[in-house]
Design a protein around this nucleic acid. Sequence first.
RNA 1: GUGGUUGUAGCUCAGUUGGUUAGAGCGCUGGACUGUGGCUCCGGAGGCCGGGGGUUCGAAUCCCCUCAGCCACCCCA
Length: 429
Amino acid sequence: MSAKKENRIRAPRGTSDYLPDRAASIHRLDRLAGEVFSNYGYQRIITPTFEDTALFTRSIGEASDIVRKEMYTFEDRGGRSLTLRPEATAPVVRAFIEHNLGSQSLPVKLYYFSNMFRYERPQAGRFREFWQLGVEALGSPEPSLDAEVITLAADFLRALDIREGLMKIGSMGDENCRPQYTLILQKYLEEKRDSFCPDCGERLKFNPLRVFDCKNSECQKALADAPKMIDYLCDECRDHFDGVGRLLKEVGIEFSIDPMLVRGFDYYTRTTFEIQSSQLGAQNALGGGGRYDRLVSDYGGKPTPAVGFALGIERLLAALKAEENVDLSTPRKIDVFLIVIDNEHRDQAFKLAIELRRIGLSAEVDYMNRSTRSQMKLADKMGAEYALILGPDEMARGEVVMRNLSTGEERPEKLSSVADKLGKIKGFE
RNA sequence: GUGGUUGUAGCUCAGUUGGUUAGAGCGCUGGACUGUGGCUCCGGAGGCCGGGGGUUCGAAUCCCCUCAGCCACCCCA
């Protein structure tokens, strides 16, 4: 019967089955997000699971690891190169342009809750298929929009009762100040090259900002005196950055300015932020995001400044579990369990169960020909509030026994009206 | 892609220096209680010891390969 283990097909590496408990937790996160986000005026958007490969190669950056080696890219039967989405900002921007959403009143505020795919070596908090919850607000360059998005992220964590999240904020500058700064940084790094690890030697050639991300303690030491983007912002970027910080203070968001904060995607401009948790392990970012004022126009849309973020669902769940503040699990509870004593009443039990379900009650029956005793045990295990016992004597009189399983009280009820009666007790009609 | 570490029942894990029919707890299931749950007690099912190859009279145990989990690098949510 059971297939030999060697032939058994398993879930692909880095993916997992989310069994009922975990699936329910994810569903609850999804619903809670819907509530919090809609208070902030964000509407849900669902984009395709796969996109034209070029969409990602252009936005994320040709040099990034995601594009170079982590994309699930395939050719379909029509010869198109497609890629399972590794992130959602590019698809949302694509949809924004494709459907001309910029013609609506701005900003357009969208959120998503969807699965992403990256071909990476699995690790704590890192999987090949994973879920992200995120928002994109398109159409305004105002610092208040940055502050809103950051506050939304913080408020959502607060709603979850995640307390260990540290909000870090930085700025990448814009096309006026970043290129100059990059040269200055590069020069500094070249001069101190000997103080850095070989990896950083590579980084400083094509992506010098990445050096700030290095975990090598020698590198970190050498970086202490390095020039920081924050100190080289042009006046406009400086004002913008200060504005974001000021607004966050106004609404009581705790944050720290991190001059070393670097984010992975090429498209970021000005504000970047990341929420880190001490509960997580090496992959410690619960989420992150930033402003991307150039992305829409880079794709051929009307110049549209925008800002967004994404949270990692599996990481939120891991943090919740580690903090033990909130229990997302929902123990199974049903309203009624129908107990059949004589097999000839099975059909009536089936009909009654359907009737109860149709008026809004959760009802269960035994499908395994269990003894009365075992059915009672099952009813108890399922957390049933009532048991309806279809005994032959009562059935002969057109009655069933209704037993309250928490008090043990029981009394006969008319078979024809017991569903209505239970419906009323439970507040249905 | 690189490195470390671990694979024994659905789950968590024991398994002595290689030695007969591979164990426990939980879970599942049946019964003690012939029509009534939670507690307790007794029974049962469920494993080619991740897979393949090798050493040996004999391998869950030793060796090699491979796959997978976990952790870290890299990178990122």
